[in-house]
Design a protein around this nucleic acid. Structure first.
Length: 579
RNA sequence: GGUCCCGUGGUGAAGUCUGGAGUUCACGCCGGCCUGUCAAGCCGGAGGUCGCGGGUUCAAAUCCCGUCGGGACCGCCA
């Protein structure tokens, strides 16, 4: 085989006169009779035009080694759209290294291709400029992050993939044990416990670019398996952790955009929920939630006799038709709202609304003044308990105003002061908002010990924090509990008794007997960061071999059945499908 | 577990609401012509189980039911 001397996209006028050999795929053949044809050859660096005679049998996606002399193109034939457009490889001789059937879709990106077909033939899809760029950007981002962590003196440590299943968190992927039939490993949802053990082990600063698996339903921003930057540091508080992570994501951002983001602002969880109806607010646009409970405190309107009322005003949104409004209302109901009230403001301040007749003049004028609503505006109101109100309006806000992924810049945000507990389960046990190793806020430790009233518990703040970018949760972290007594107290509150905690987390509790340093950490999703930085709204576009929404891989046909011998070896029997 | 959208030559779309001959457009593919193209051009051609199954009808890509696949979202994701 002829040896490559140069890459297609790197040839320039500096190379004029050189005899070169380039290797790659035929992007395009333009034939002008038997003795003249232009063959565009593509490799990872780009495309260069080769001038070939007798090119009739050289077809799209053939793999060639082309040898010829780099020469300047005649001035009138320079192609300014192509980086190599001022030169060409002349008098080229072609060695066909592999022929190719016509691909099932065009590689040139001229027509959009159905994603299933792309993934089924991913090895062809990877040839497209889009995937080449996305995967190279991803590699650059990973490298920048790794470099940043190394510069900050973090130590990369690998943690096991086959671990014990723990009851908390997402559904585990599970691997049957051959040597211990009937027992199972779990694949890690995160290296959480191991990195805390590293802190007890005096590693001081740990990081890992770690694959994590969670058996939950897939979404545009969620795959079964995903990649995180996982980190943990000893003798550090949340502020220091956020500084380290800010540095890493800033470096990654600069690597792609050429611009370093400004320092990342912080917002409390409560403020985020009240203003944006989300713990991962997309702050690229306003449409903030407006507090209206007071305005309707004495209302006769039954639907508004609720503990919380908030609204959103869309400026100039009064041209919404009845049909659209009905659809919005249906959506709101599907999100759990009892209803959605809309009020349009007309030319002289009069309002149009199906429920206007149930509101007093004072309520209407109060509403308009608090929301600062003017002619042509529309207000959407939801009344319920606070959680439901902010939840529904948060989703409505995104529905009404969220810009496309490419617009509005990159708005990083730290959300801090999460509550320690999210809610209370049916048995009255509080449910952890983060994970059970999260340190409560120092000022709220008293609330924790003195009180068993669920309302008080829900007000306990934790030292947990999330990093948000354009409405996507990039990741979360916390200051950890490093004291056995507090950890046991939390387990008790969660309804995990000593016996159970010893069984599930005994190794961690044991480790804490021997001098655990205060420590804190974080983990963020690299797939999501890459997607947003390269302007993709789906992480499958930045994953080489992703799975479909139903968890299948159209390329390899996973998941697949296994044969009986394998099952027997593992001590497993497959039940008939439930009907 | 739920809601919504999509499935038509190799690819992408239109046709579906309002049933009437597999009809149309762009790209690709094959053959011919063509010595400066680069979204090459011109001429010709091939290529279809309208995802699948059932039903309604004289007649179904089109209407109804079911099912499969894909996607977006709610739930879920400590």
């Amino acid at each position: 085989m002829t040896k490559r001397t140069d890459y297609c996209g790197q040839l320039s006028s500096d190379d004029i006169g050189r005899t070169v050999t380039v290797c790659g795929w035929v992007a395009k053949r333009r034939e002008h009779g038997e003795y003249l044809a232009f063959v565009d050859l593509r490799d990872r660096t780009g495309i260069v035009q080769c001038v070939v005679d007798h090119a009739h049998d050289i077809r799209s996606e053939y793999v060639l080694a082309v040898t010829g002399t780099v020469r300047e193109r005649p001035p009138e034939t320079v192609n300014t759209d192509l980086p190599t457009g001022s030169i060409e490889i002349g008098e080229a001789t072609v060695e066909i290294l592999a022929s190719a059937e016509p691909p099932p879709f065009q590689i040139d990106g001229r027509v959009e291709v159905d994603e299933t077909i792309r993934i089924h033939h991913r090895y062809l899809d990877l040839r497209t400029g889009r995937m080449q760029q996305n995967l190279r950007s991803r590699a650059a981002i990973s490298a920048a992050i790794r470099r940043s962590m190394e510069d900050q003196e973090f130590v990369e440590i690998e943690t096991p993939m086959l671990i014990a299943s723990t009851p908390e968190g997402a559904r585990d992927f599970v691997v049957p044990s051959r040597l211990s039939p009937g027992n199972f490993y779990a694949l890690p949802q995160s290296p959480q416990l191991f990195k805390q053990l590293c802190m007890v082990g005096g590693i001081d600063r740990y990081y890992q670019i770690a694959r994590c698996m969670r058996d939950e339903d897939l979404r545009a921003d969620r795959q079964f398996e995903f990649t995180q930057l996982d980190m943990e540091m000893s003798f550090a508080d949340g502020e220091q952790v956020r500084a380290v992570v800010s540095e890493a994501v800033s470096n990654a951002t600069e690597m792609i955009t050429g611009q370093r983001p400004e320092s990342i602002p912080e917002m409390s969880w409560l403020e985020a929920m009240n203003r944006y109806g989300s713990d991962k607010p997309d702050v690229r646009f306003d449409l903030e939630l407006v507090e209206l409970t007071e305005v309707f405190s004495g209302t006769d309107f039954n639907a508004f006799k609720a503990s919380s009322i908030k609204g959103i005003k869309v400026e100039g949104g009064a041209d919404m038709g009845r049909n659209q409004l009905d659809q919005l209302t249906d959506k709101a109901k599907s999100w759990g709202a009892k209803g959605l009230v809309w009020i349009k403001v007309g030319p002289s301040g009069e309002v149009t609304s199906p429920v206007a007749k149930f509101m007093s003049e004072a309520e209407i004028s109060g509403l308009l003044s608090v929301m600062n609503a003017k002619e042509g505006d529309i207000c959407y109101l939801v009344a319920d308990d606070w959680r439901q109100v902010v939840h529904v309006l948060g989703l409505l806000r995104l529905e009404l105003g969220r810009p496309p992924v490419n617009e509005g810049g990159l708005r990083f945000l730290w959300v801090v002061d999460f509550p320690l507990f999210e809610d209370v389960d049916d048995d009255g046990n509080p449910l952890p908002a983060h994970h059970p190793f999260t340190m409560p806020h120092a000022d709220d430790l008293e609330l924790l010990s003195n009180s068993s009233a669920p309302d008080d518990l829900l007000n306990v703040r934790s030292q947990a924090y999330d990093l948000v970018l354009n409405g996507w949760e990039l990741g979360s972290g916390s200051v950890r509990i490093h004291r056995r007594d507090i950890q046991q107290q939390i387990f008790n509150l969660l309804g995990i008794n000593e016996e159970e905690s010893q069984e599930k987390f005994g190794f961690l509790m044991d480790a804490f007997r021997y001098g655990a340093p205060p420590h804190a950490g974080f983990a963020f999703g690299i797939d999501r960061l890459v997607a947003l930085l390269v302007g993709e709204e789906n992480i499958r576009e930045v994953i080489a071999f992703p799975k479909s929404q139903s968890g299948a891989d159209p390329l390899t046909n996973a998941p697949s059945s296994i044969d009986t011998a394998q099952l027997n070896e593992l001590g497993l029997r497959v039940l008939p499908p439930a009907t």
